[in-house]
Design a protein around this nucleic acid. Structure first.
Length: 581
DNA sequence: GCCGTTTTCGGCCCGACTGTTTTCAGTCG
């Protein structure tokens, strides 16, 4: 799929344009890039089917950008970009990741110090060269070094979504081979960890024949997007994809698929415990099976492997040695929420606040996902750039949603649209929308979108005050972290959880791939305190509704059950929760 | 460069915050 590659080039063109103070064009390129990466269909397919006209239907794509997409599809290059890159050969993708660095700084760094990548930048900062540049100073230099250190800590880890989308694509390709019998992801990806080091895949061959394994491996090492083959063998091959994600494929015997899957899924600590448990029963557990002496007693499925050592089957998300084995032995393992148990998404943006789709389009997409309800929660007025709604617009939107609800029911759609908003928590903990208006909505989400560098005490008080507002039912992305990019706010999460319990406020598990906030550990803390949670996507496009599974995965990793998640509840129970003032 | 219930040109892109400065440049959401 070329969408992301083209989007990345457009993002870079936007930055080059911004360096030259060109107005409006950068936003146009950014908008097109955003639309491209949100697209679920391959632009190549759209172009083949509907030519340039089809491309121009993508929001933000007009005549010029459509031509550039076509140019890339045909030649693998975009001349406009090549021209800029020739003039300033800088690794923009790398430098822009540094918090506090934007187009103007990249330009100044290149012009004055010939800095082209992260390594150059770090060296120059360490040598105190940055502070001498105009508009730079000691503090900027220090911030840049801190930000680079943060990036380095997270280097080599990929977002769960990136790894999963690639893995699913690989599996789709491999499943076309008729000799393949079973295939599954393993490793941290199967455990749905928030970041992934590499992709592990496990497969079996129908008749176990060596020449068939070779066929499979041949397809694997020649997949689209591979830039390096590390290993090529009949039982294991290893490759690197263009985003520098590595993937391993192992072929195992059908009899050992379960034990191999269990072994390669990990986690390592979980496996150490399961092996100990096996030893206590005079058994031996390894990747080839469960053995009594030399006799194989289990191995074909994970279920029989766990059963053989006296455990129930464990969902991969639980296998972190965080007490799951002990809980299982005491039959106290919770029934964690299923991927199909969410009944609605309560944090979605519409085109009222600059999102891509109308409320109706969002509702129809939600209906297709089988949801009972969809909550529209646009930004409010403090966020001017996001077209935040003011009191008057919120009331207008309320009427529009009432109308749409009654119209939709006559057209065979069963989905019910709820009206909320994502109000801004201002520095003093008050909200940017009048309580009288908030009172008229079905629910209110409150979130922090500004002044993220307060002290721990100030930030905690700020959020506590917002939760004490009787209309606030949900706190969005409670810790504010962006994976691999920005740390959490300074925040006393225990106090926040405590206040959430006292005020019956639900804490969000934001499913947006770069957020996953709350994270699994904080989810577990909240669940233990009996605090209610809500899994939302923060969709700004109808395709983003699909991100739900990433949030569900984190909820599962945090041992949350259906009862803990308010949007796994039927609508009557949900509305009762919202109206509990 | 895109877009159109202001429709083929003229809008679009604001305000807080930080760090640099002494009136402002750049980043972020």
């Amino acid at each position: 799929m070329k969408n992301q590659e083209i989007a990345n080039i457009f993002y870079q063109i936007a930055i080059y344009l911004e360096m030259d103070n060109i107005s409006f064009k950068p936003q146009a390129y950014e908008k097109a890039a955003f639309a491209l990466e949100s697209l679920s269909e391959d632009v190549k397919d759209i172009f083949q089917r509907e030519a340039e006209e089809g491309l121009k239907k993508i929001p933000g794509v007009g005549e010029n950008i459509a031509k550039k997409i076509i140019e890339y599809l045909k030649t693998g290059k975009i001349k406009e970009y090549e021209k800029y890159y020739h003039k300033m050969p800088v690794n923009i993708g790398e430098l822009i990741q540094v918090e506090g660095i934007g187009p103007k700084m990249i330009k100044a760094l290149y012009k004055n110090l010939k800095i082209t990548n992260l390594e150059d930048l770090e060296k120059a900062a360490q040598q105190g060269k940055l502070r001498k540049l105009p508009n730079f100073g000691e503090k900027t230099e220090k911030n840049i070094l801190e930000s680079i250190a943060f990036l380095k800590r997270s280097r080599g880890r990929f977002l769960l979504s990136e790894a999963l989308f690639l893995a699913e694509d690989i599996i789709l390709q491999l499943k076309k081979i008729k000799e393949i019998d079973k295939i599954s992801v393993a490793g941290s990806l199967r455990r749905m960890k928030e970041t992934i080091g590499d992709i592990d895949l496990l497969a079996t061959i129908k008749n176990g024949a060596k020449e068939d394994a070779k066929k499979v491996m041949d397809v694997f090492v020649n997949l689209d997007g591979i830039i390096k083959v590390w290993d090529y063998g009949l039982t294991k091959s290893s490759v690197r994809f263009d985003k520098k994600i590595d993937a391993d494929l192992r072929v195992v015997d059908d009899d050992e698929f379960g034990s191999a899957l269990q072994y390669f899924t990990g986690s390592k600590d979980h496996n150490i415990k399961t092996r100990k448990l096996a030893m206590e029963k005079n058994l031996k557990l390894n990747e080839y099976g469960v053995f009594k002496g030399k006799k194989l007693t289990a191995g074909k499925t994970e279920e029989e492997v766990y059963q053989a050592i006296g455990l129930p089957y464990m969902e991969p998300e639980l296998r972190e040695d965080r007490g799951e084995i002990e809980a299982a032995l005491e039959e106290k393992l919770p029934k964690i929420i299923g991927y199909d148990e969410i009944k609605g998404d309560l944090h979605c943006h519409s085109d009222w606040d600059g999102g891509e789709n109308s409320i109706e389009e969002m509702a129809k997409a939600a209906q297709l996902l089988g949801y009972e309800y969809l909550g529209i929660s646009d930004h409010t007025k403090f966020l001017r750039i996001e077209n935040g709604l003011d009191e008057k617009q919120l009331l207008e939107q309320h009427k529009a949603i009432e109308k749409l609800n009654s119209r939709i029911q006559h057209t065979g759609y069963r989905i019910q649209i709820l009206h909320g908003c994502e109000a801004n928590i201002l520095n003093d903990g008050s909200l940017d929308i009048d309580d009288k208006v908030l009172a008229q909505l079905d629910y209110v989400i409150a979130g922090i979108h500004s002044s993220m560098k307060m002290t721990r005490e100030e930030m905690t008080q700020r959020m506590i005050k917002a939760m004490q507002n009787p209309y606030v039912k949900i706190i969005s992305h409670p810790t504010g972290r962006l994976i691999n990019r920005r740390d959490e706010y300074q925040l006393d999460i225990e106090k926040i959880i405590e206040t959430a319990r006292e005020t019956s406020t639900a804490l969000e598990i934001n499913s947006f791939p770069s957020r996953l906030d709350l994270n699994d550990k904080n989810i577990r803390k909240a669940v233990e305190k009996g605090v209610k949670l809500v899994i939302n996507t923060d969709a700004h496009h109808r395709d983003h509704l699909q991100f739900m599974r990433f949030g569900i995965a984190q909820a599962r990793r945090g041992w949350a059950t259906k009862n803990d998640i308010i949007n796994a509840w039927p609508i009557d129970k949900l509305l009762k929760f919202f109206h509990k003032i």
